[in-house]
Nucleic acid binder design. Structure first.
Lengths: 295, 295
DNA sequence: TCCGATCGTTGAGCGTGGCTCAACGCCGCT
DNA sequence: AGCGGCGTTGAGCCACGCTCAACGATCGGA
């Protein structure tokens, strides 16, 4: 019979007719799509796609399989949704966490709307250390975490992007750059960058706290910080600079800190992450509620 | 979404309303069924079954989920079957193997009927050593093997029981037991039992070549043998005895060997085994063909 | 009310298959 | 001929489905 991942790979590829896009939509590598389709074809005993390195097309067999499978797959999804609906399945306990202060407000707002709709459930919102990465999810302290993307951990599920904010550089007001209308990434060269040191994965730190500018110049090292509050203290005390989301300037501006737009940096994307194994009706309701909340 | 194993566990349990039977039908442990259902219920957010240690019943939510899922699941199966059919997917190469001579005849007969229907495919039938267990499947020498059950290997798929034969004891004609109308397992005490020595798993050897009688008396040790022909040579030369299937006596009786029914031993069951990863349309057609063949 | 039998649950630990990553080969364009 | 885009392949990793054994709950029979 069909495994879920086989179904999804086949159906997606039949729609996209492109291995790269299919892989991206499903959040796996192109190699995996190739291997999965190949395995399916061996089971069926005939090619499902006619493909060269330049084009992918459904064979007649593939087309009729697609037409057979699509409604069945839709039925499965609908059945699950209906069951969740019928079960009024939103109850239980959900422990959520955030590292940046305005994230806490977002989570609290969502928790309130959810509690109003489903009084049965219990939702806690806690701050977590900036340098802990997704550790609290792993050690069972939390069920969901609001974090800055990217998160690429095989055992964690990543929700949609909920907030995308332009990047700014937080500098001490006394700093020469504080007066500039905007900065480029190259301006980071030599500046003492404050960064968390701890369990956060390498690719995440490199993404948010680069050690080199695009042209290769070294970025300086400022003091390490465990929480966002520590980061802000360091900046306002003149001990370093740090990139952050423009949102922070609007919601929790700090005296002594200037927020200068970083022209050529992509926006920071934030969203929810949770252990795949901890999926539950309450969790998904919460994810939806956060998505519907606006700061 | 639903994983295949979750779907099957839920649907089967909804029909059987009994964890033990469900587990048996799916070939897993009851613990796994329990864990799987629990996970599903957490996802749905409501109990699907009302269960005590004495009874299992569908809850209303569970019932409507069952009614939603069953047709979708049937559609999936039907879609696969149709695709295999449409693909005329029976072609390619299939290397089959057997250890007992009459097994070879069974496989050859099936191969012939399959080749007549699908001239495109290539099927080879080879004898394999008795003491190699399922090694040829592991090292890629064979695609399917006809073996005596039980086979409990996580990476192998077990086909249905194709032949169930009463057990007999093969003894030299000159042996005092040769004249008996039947024997009990206790009679094995002290007899030199010929057994393969090699890669076959412990549970398999214990099942077919017990080292103790039911009452605990030690069974003797005869010479080791690598193939079934060697076993027969040893027996007719008076070097030992061996349990086997009654079928052997009918198809390849050997002068010098008496086949005495073993009264209290369960029948030996034979069937096909293959690496789960090697599943293919041709393979399944072959399994079916062997099932339809009769000696 | 105590036992034994039956059945579902739980947690620790194991093994494998789904997955990534990097190298490769093919194709079309310039 | 060189290059860039794309699908394939193989080696290796690790999360997760599964087993196993201990446990707890519920019944029937003395």
């Amino acid at each position: 019979m069909f495994e879920r991942y086989e179904l999804e790979a086949f159906l997606t590829l039949a729609e996209e007719l492109h291995f790269g896009r299919t892989a991206e939509r499903l959040g796996v590598s192109t190699g995996r799509i190739s291997q999965t389709v190949k395995k399916l074809e061996r089971r069926v005993g005939a090619p499902l796609f006619a493909r060269t390195s330049r084009s992918v097309q459904l064979t007649p067999v593939g087309l009729s399989l697609y037409e057979d499978l699509l409604p069945a797959y839709r039925q499965l999804r609908a059945a699950l949704e209906r069951a969740v609906e019928a079960g009024r399945g939103v109850h239980g306990r959900l422990r959520t966490g955030f590292a940046t202060p305005w994230g806490g407000e977002l989570l609290t707002a969502a928790a309130d709307t959810l509690l109003a709709r489903h009084p049965g459930c219990e939702i806690t919102v806690r701050e977590v250390p900036l340098d802990g990465g997704t550790g609290p999810l792993r050690d069972g302290t939390l069920d969901v975490q609001f974090v800055a993307f990217p998160v690429r951990e095989p055992d964690l599920t990543t929700g949609p992007v909920l907030v995308a904010e332009d990047r700014v550089l937080l500098v001490p007001v006394a700093h020469p750059l504080a007066g500039r209308a905007s900065l480029g990434l190259e301006d980071l060269a030599g500046l003492p960058l404050i960064a968390p040191e701890g369990a956060s994965p390498r690719y995440w730190r490199d993404h948010h706290f680069p050690r080199r500018t695009p042209s290769g110049a070294a970025v300086g090292r400022g003091p390490a910080a465990a929480t966002w509050q520590e980061v802000l203290s360091h900046v306002s005390a003149g001990r370093g600079v740090v990139p952050g989301a423009a949102l922070g300037a609007r919601y929790h501006p700090r005296p002594g800190i200037a927020y200068v737009p970083l022209r050529d940096a992509p926006p920071i994307e934030y969203g929810l992450v949770w252990p795949t194994a901890a999926d539950s009706a309450l969790l998904r309701a919460f994810v939806e509620a956060v998505g519907a909340s606006h700061l």
